[in-house]
């Protein structure tokens, strides 16, 4: 939840400076609004922070509705007199990130891997070949491919230790279904 809040702060602030990407700012607000809707912790301070952030970020775009909702939170001062939200970059740290699994060019599913193993948001696409040892993983960061890895190199990149590597290789041998892939990954990373 806190991550959604601060991701929105970062994105909207960036969109309001530099190139003025107001259209993407508005969709960032929708993302935060949806995240608040899905949240389960509705009486926590984190949720309250999220709601107040949404209204403050909304204020330049839709000043009236932001004000009305702001005052309904119990404030007397105008939302337009509030200080702009401050980004806490530690809140942006991601604990798990999704790996997209592709088999023969088709997306078969997504698995979550621990984020501390990964330097940034990235997508790994697996092109299944005959055996696990020959699986080539295509890892990409944003739009450009960083490179092609054999499974061993991929493990090195994920900074897996020898044991995990062996386990992954052992599990991988002969696997050719998405379920098998999934379980071998989750097994290794759990």
């Amino acid at each position: 939840m806190r991550r959604s809040t601060h991701t929105a702060i970062q994105a909207v602030t960036e969109d309001l400076e530099g190139e003025y990407q107001f259209n993407t700012a508005v969709s960032e607000l929708m993302k935060l609004s949806n995240a608040l809707g899905d949240a389960t912790c509705k009486d926590s301070p984190v949720y309250r922070e999220g709601v107040e952030t949404l209204l403050k970020l909304l204020a330049p775009f839709a000043p009236h509705i932001a004000e009305e909702l702001w005052q309904s939170l119990g404030y007397v001062d105008s939302v337009h007199q509030q200080a702009w939200c401050v980004l806490d970059s530690s809140a942006l740290v991601v604990d798990e990130i999704p790996l997209v699994i592709q088999v023969m060019g088709k997306t078969r599913g997504t698995i979550l891997v621990p984020a501390q193993l990964r330097p940034c948001h990235a997508r790994a696409a697996c092109l299944a070949r005959r055996s696990w040892h020959n699986v080539i993983l295509r890892v990409r960061r944003s739009k450009s491919y960083c490179g092609h890895w054999k499974i061993g190199e991929f493990c090195d990149w994920l900074r897996l230790d020898e044991t995990a590597k062996n386990r992954l290789s052992a599990h991988g041998t002969g696997i050719n279904s998405i379920n098998g892939l999934h379980s071998s990954f989750t097994d290794c990373f759990s």
């Binding site: 107001f22 330049p60 775009f61 000043p63 337009h80 007199q81 509030q82 200080a83 702009w84």
Partner: peptide, 14 residues
Amino acid sequence: TITDVIARHKRMQG
């Protein structure tokens, strides 16, 4: 509206 969004944002930024 574009100018207004910028003006409101800058006010909130102090």
